[in-house]
Design a protein around this nucleic acid. Structure first.
Lengths: 195, 195
DNA sequence: GTCTTTCTTTACGTCGTGTAAAGTTCATCC
DNA sequence: GGATGAACTTTACACGACGTAAAGAAAGAC
C-alpha cells in the first residue's frame, strides 16, 4: 500500500499540476502547498527546490499520461510517413496537457541551473526523436531536396516548442486542431510525394 | 546642447543595451548602473522601474537604428511581393540587434503588468504590419488558397518572434542568413506563382 | 557666486525562495 | 494498545533583486 509519504508527494504533484495549468497563475510554492493541504515547508521536504518539483512533475505527467507507450507505438509503425505524421499529431495533443508546466520550467531555466539542465534534456530528447523520424524518411527517399535533416529538425523542433504553442494557442486562440493542421502542413512541406 | 540629465540617461540606456546583448547576463540594475558610471538609485531616478527602462530602451533602439524609416521604405515599394520579402528580410537582420532586450522584456512581461503591455503592444504592432502586407498580396491575387490571412499572419508572427529567433539562432546556432532563408521559404510557401 | 538641478549616500521595505531546528501528530509494528 | 520513528508543522531567519525615501554633496546654468 502507498505510504503516507507517497500520498502527500502525489497530492503536491497534482496540486502543482493544476495550479500550473491555470494560465497566468504564478503558482508559488505557498499556493501549491495549501492546495495540497500541507505547508510550504513540507513541499521543500519532498522536493528541495522549486526546480526539483517541476522536474519531478514533468516526469510524473509523462508517466501518468503514458507518453512512452505512445512513442513506442508510433515508432513501431512500418510506414515512415505515417509515423512522422502521427508524431506531429502527438505533439499537438500532448502539448496542451503539459504546457503550463513546460512554460514554468522554461522560465525557471533562465535562472536555475538544474532546471535548465532538465529542460534542455527534455528539449534535446524531443529533437532526437524528430531526427530519428527524418532519417527514416530520408532512407525511404521521401524527403524533399533543399533542406538538410538537421535544419528540418530544428524547424520542426521549434514549431513544436512550448513557446510556439503558447503564441498560437494561448495568445492567438488557436484550437489544438488548428495547431495540428499547421504542424502537419509544415511537416509535409518537407516531404516529397511518393514516386 | 544636451543637458547633463540627457547625457546620463543616454549612458544608462547604452549600458543597458550592451549588458542585455550579452547572452546569459542577468543585467541587474546594479550592473547597468555601474557600467553607466552612476548608482543604482540614479537609474531609478531616470526610469522608475526595470520595466520602464526596458520600454524606453526598445524605443531608443528603434530610433537609433532607424527602424521606422526602413519600414516606410518597404511600404513604399510598389510590388507587394517584393515588399513582403523585404519585410521578412528586415526581421532577420533587425532581430539580432534587439534580441537581448526583447527577451528581457518578454521575461519581465510574465510578472510586470507595464512590461507586458509594452511587449504586447510591440508584438501586436508587428502582427498588424504583417496583416497589412498580406492584404496587399491578397488584393493582388498572389496569396495561395487554403490558409486565411489571419492564420498566415499568426504563423509568420510566431516565426519572427524573439523566442523563435532564440531557439534557432542562439540555441541551435543558425546564422542570421540561414534564419533569413527560412523566413523567406516560409513566407513564400503561402504565395501563389504569378499567373 | 548663488541657486537649482542632478546625483550620491544611506537605509529600509517587499516578495518569493531556501534553510534550520525544535515541536507535534499520527501511522505502523510488535 | 503503547512505544517508536517517520512525516508534517511551527517558527524564525537569510538572501537576492527590485523598489522607495530623504538628506546631503556636487556641479552646471544664469
Amino acid at each position: 500500500m502507498s505510504s503516507k509519504r507517497d500520498r502527500t508527494r502525489l497530492s503536491i504533484l497534482e496540486a502543482a499540476w493544476k495550479r500550473l495549468s491555470i494560465s497566468g497563475d504564478p503558482a508559488r510554492l505557498e499556493d501549491i502547498a495549501s492546495d495540497a493541504g500541507v505547508t510550504r515547508q513540507s513541499v521543500h521536504l519532498h522536493f528541495r527546490t522549486r526546480g526539483a518539483l517541476l522536474v519531478a512533475l514533468v516526469e510524473h505527467i509523462d508517466v501518468s499520461l503514458g507518453l512512452f507507450d505512445r512513442l513506442a507505438e508510433i515508432q513501431a509503425l512500418e510506414d515512415p510517413v505515417e509515423a512522422f505524421e502521427e508524431a506531429l499529431r502527438l505533439v499537438a495533443t500532448y502539448q496542451p496537457k503539459v504546457h503550463g508546466v513546460a512554460m514554468a520550467l522554461a522560465t525557471l531555466a533562465q535562472t536555475d541551473a538544474d532546471a535548465r539542465e532538465a529542460f534542455d534534456d527534455r528539449m534535446q530528447g524531443r529533437r532526437e526523436g524528430i531526427v530519428a523520424m527524418l532519417r527514416r524518411l530520408q532512407r525511404a527517399g521521401r524527403l524533399a531536396p533543399g533542406w538538410s535533416v538537421d535544419k528540418i529538425a530544428d524547424i520542426l523542433w521549434e514549431a513544436g516548442a512550448p513557446s510556439s504553442f503558447h503564441h498560437l494557442v494561448v495568445e492567438r486562440g488557436w484550437s489544438p486542431k488548428e495547431m495540428e493542421r499547421w504542424l502537419l502542413h509544415l511537416g509535409r512541406s518537407f516531404l516529397r510525394p511518393r514516386t
